[in-house]
Simulated scan of single mutants.
Amino acid sequence: MRHLLRRAGTGLAILGLVVTVLGTFLPWLHSGSVLRNSYEAADLVRRLLELDSGVGGALLLVWPGVGPVAALCVAGYLVGFPRVSAVANLVFSAITGAVGVFASVHADDGGSLVGISWTGPVTVLVGAVLALLGAIGVLVGAPGPFTQGRNSEQHRGTVRP
């Protein structure tokens, strides 16, 4: 049962990571008829508000790393480091999900001249939730310290001295 949960969690986590990254390329900001993805919007906000320090500035500065970090998590799942990938995925999903929530809450219906679009942020949020649930499934389904090798035999009392 744990093996099935771990495999399903891995699949869901990878799907969520892919959806998260795809969401960063969808519209996040609209100004007139121009749509900007999250990378263009982050750069624009950073330059306009001169956010080069603080938490907001740091987040805007590292935002282009979303794709590479997600790719590292996927690679970790695929090459046999599911626990490490799941823990990294939890942190990654918490951050991208929070950004998605913040932008989604501030999104408008397009009636204003300049505003936040809901398409990209909501897609990132959905992807982050899927990735988060998948990572939890991987961690819950991962074998514990007493389920492999000699330790499991000692735990069950089947090893004779």
Rank of each mutant, 00 (worst) to 15 (best):
A86M: 05
V21D: 12
P121S: 05
G127F: 13
D109Q: 07
L139M: 09
V66K: 05
V34S: 14
T119E: 14
T20F: 12
N151R: 14
V55F: 14
G144P: 02
V84N: 00
L90A: 10
F146G: 01
L60S: 07
V99P: 05
A128L: 12
V18E: 03
A13Q: 15
A107E: 04
V122N: 11
R36Y: 12
P161M: 04
E50S: 11
G11T: 11
A103M: 10
F92V: 05
D109W: 06
E153L: 08
H106L: 11
I95F: 15
P68S: 10
A71N: 14
G111A: 05
I14N: 08
I116C: 00
I116P: 00
L59P: 03
L4T: 09
R46P: 04
G65Y: 12
S117Y: 00
L12F: 08
H155V: 04
G76L: 02
D43K: 09
A70R: 12
S31T: 13
W118V: 14
L130V: 11
I136P: 01
L48E: 15
T10I: 11
T96A: 11
V84Q: 05
G65R: 07
I136S: 02
G111Y: 03
S38P: 06
Y39I: 11
L59K: 06
V114C: 09
A58F: 13
A88P: 00
V159G: 00
G134K: 06
L15Y: 14
V21Y: 12
L132R: 09
I116E: 00
V45I: 15
G149W: 07
L130M: 15
E50Y: 02
I116V: 12
A98I: 01
V66H: 07
Q148I: 14
G127T: 12
W118C: 02
I116F: 05
V69A: 14
A128R: 11
L17G: 15
L44K: 03
V84R: 02
L35F: 10
R83P: 01
S53F: 06
P145K: 03
